[in-house]
Amino acid sequence: MTTRDILLWVVLPYVAGAVFVVGHLWRYRYDRFGWTTRSSQVYESRLLRAGSPMFHIGILMVIGGHVVGLLIPRTWLEAVGVTEHAYHLVATWAGTIAAVLTLAGLAILVYRRRTVGPVFLATTRMDKLMYVVLGATLAFGTAATVMFQVLGDAYDYRGSVSPWVRGLLTFQPDPALMADVPVAFQLHILCALALFGLWPFTRLVHVFSAPLGYVTRPYIVYRTRDDDRLGNRAPRRGWERVERPGAPR
């Protein structure tokens, strides 16, 4: 185990993770007004209508696949009857479909962003950087899948990458697991770490605003005075109301 291994597979993931968590908390406290999808649909609808659902459905499948492949141990899946062969078949097929959807969607969206004048003008430098890192992550991930899972003889990442990820999450990191992982996978992971570090400072924060509460809340929202509040949001720490004894509220 070299210093390089520790830096890449222990220090870097934890730094990226810390930036990810703290960055989101900080952004939510400081910049709730800037927390938005920044949709550009009012500029252009036709291309978006094709690209955006493709990309988003694809990427949701990708996330689901990563959760199953990385976080759920092989033994658990085998316990419920998912054999190695069945897993590989599903992962390769579903993974390929998801990758095609995601990459095709992203291609349409990036093309739209570059060629439609108002959309290009509304693109920030952070957006561009995010597109590069996101695109690279997706490209290396797809390349690794195609090289090893589709054409090659099925690299067993569930024996190396997955335990490494679970080790990071349980604070028992084991960089040795990553030492012999193929370069395509390594690059994919490094790009993903960079993406996690960038995440809180980009428009990707909208992922954490998925409006699932809409399904259960009443249609019409009323807001009224809450006696404990001065405004519509709770008083921030250090700015609570001071009560004078006997003063009318």
């Binding site: 709730r32 007004f33 927390w35 938005t36 999808t37 920044r38 949709s39 649909q41 009012v42 909208h206 605003s209 409006p211 509460g213 809409y214 809340r217 019409i220 929202v221 009323y222 807001r223 009224t224 005075r225 519509n232 949001r233």
Partner: peptide, 24 residues
């Protein structure tokens, strides 16, 4: 997002800019 609301006091309909996420 539940960012739009009707003020209970006078019925004015407003958008909470801190809560709006641009789902349009």
């Amino acid at each position: 997002s539940g960012a739009m609301y009707k003020r209970a006091e006078d019925g004015i309909v407003l958008v909470d800019q801190d809560q709006c996420r641009g789902w349009r």
